[in-house]
Nucleic acid binder design. Structure first.
Lengths: 128, 128
DNA sequence: GCGGAACTACGAACGTTTTCGTTGACAATA
DNA sequence: TATTGTCAACGAAAACGTTCGTAGTTCCGC
């Protein structure tokens, strides 16, 4: 039984993944340009990172074209769930309630967002 | 205007902080023993870590006694909020709603937990 | 006072992540 | 065919986090 688990992406790797989620399958050049605004580096740095990410299994690589096309292997939601579960264990002793309370009480959530969350709650409680 | 921000604690540093939050101000030895079960290392490793954490400002240090007494500089909730806000930016594009949805759907919260969360929502919306 | 226990301080080693320069392959073009 | 531009591959270096051994200090009991 293989223990095939994707490792948790580092901060920089996550920035690349976000580009791939937003743009879909992309070449190194495309990612590099998309990253230029927020994370200015040299082309080969992005290349190296993405090669390593391919080795780790974070992205898949299509080599049919001369410029290889990379794609995130896990959907955005899967990785989000992974990171969130991780933080839940590491910093919240597994208590989802206190995590949600924290996120709500830090004034990040707007009124509309609160409404949406309430809707999700309704669905979870009543729906099933 | 000084830009005094506490750096985000690493995984290992967070383990130490968790001990300090649980025990309150503690010596290196006390932390080391508390950590022995989950994170077995040598005494001086914990010492070094805590010295570095003091430099970073993650903990404060009282040197009155021979065995220095360390204390977390930020309350548990503050650090949790910091880490959460960080993850929100890095992985959720700032959307608290999708973060809460993720945590609710993946770690299916119990009925009581849902009730508690709903109470928080009520307080946030109606209370003020 | 002496020896051992409990500390802090320090520095070296190691692994991982991030960065970049260089090289060689390939393609398009003049 | 020679030149130029784009690309992957690779290696090395820098930065960071983690680990541990060693040295030196202080304290206590004998």
């Amino acid at each position: 039984m293989p223990k095939r688990e994707t490792p948790r992406p580092t901060d920089t790797e996550l920035q690349i993944l976000r580009v791939l989620w937003r743009r879909g399958p992309s070449t190194v050049r495309e990612v590099h340009e998309a990253l230029a605004a927020t994370h200015p580096t040299v082309y080969t740095t992005v290349l190296k990172l993405m090669q390593i990410m391919a080795e780790k299994g974070l992205v898949s690589r299509n080599e049919e074209q001369r410029a290889h096309v990379y794609e995130a292997r896990l959907a955005r939601e899967e990785t989000q769930a992974q990171l969130l579960g991780d933080l839940l264990d590491r910093a919240f002793e597994g208590s989802a309630t206190s995590l949600v309370m924290q996120v709500l009480s830090s004034k990040r959530a707007s009124a509309e967002e609160l409404e949406q969350i309430r809707a999700v709650l309704d669905e979870l409680e009543g729906g099933e």
